[in-house]
Amino acid sequence: MKKLIAGMIVFGSIWGFLECSLGDWLHQYNMSALMVVAAVFLMAVTRRMFAQPGMQMGMALIAAILRHFNPIGGACLVCASIAIVVQGLAFELIWVIPWHKYQSMTMKASMGVVSFYTIAAVSYLATQIFTPLLTATPHLSDLAGVMPKIFAHAFIAGLAGAVALPVAHTEITIHLNDRFYYPVAAAVTAVCWMAVIAGV
């Protein structure tokens, strides 16, 4: 259990750090879909490693909190944090479906498309619904104009997911002695938080 919580904190922190650095950079070039790909890939890898439902939701909450501490990306704190939490929630829901018992490449690639696409679309849609609700006046008519953009954004994530999910499910086992596991996890977590708070 201790190992699981440490894993959740360290991977959640890595995710949050990536959102604050890589995510912000990708957003400038209209390539936010690639950040979703990285996030879902990280969740898929950790689910395979730890095999614990709920862990990825915890990671998402940590990443969302860390995103909130980012002094540089202040204007987008609300939408980015909402997107991260929704990504974690959508991942947990999709991973409840018992598709994992099918080990074929066809299933992994197809579910890669379905899961990455769905998570990207749902998280984008959630930001478009919840950000105005929390910060401004919501206008439902705005959603109609945004829907093609949401699907186009999810299309990129879906295509990448066809490759990323089979890769995430590749059996690679790294054994890290307990003596090193906790110090490494603590050090990586500390570096991520310090880098984000310092605005790196």
Binding site: V114, Y117, T118, K149, F151, A152, A154, F155, G158, L159
Partner: peptide
Amino acid sequence: LLLVGAASS
């Protein structure tokens, strides 16, 4: 899903 995405793009 990919068809919807491609059509949207």
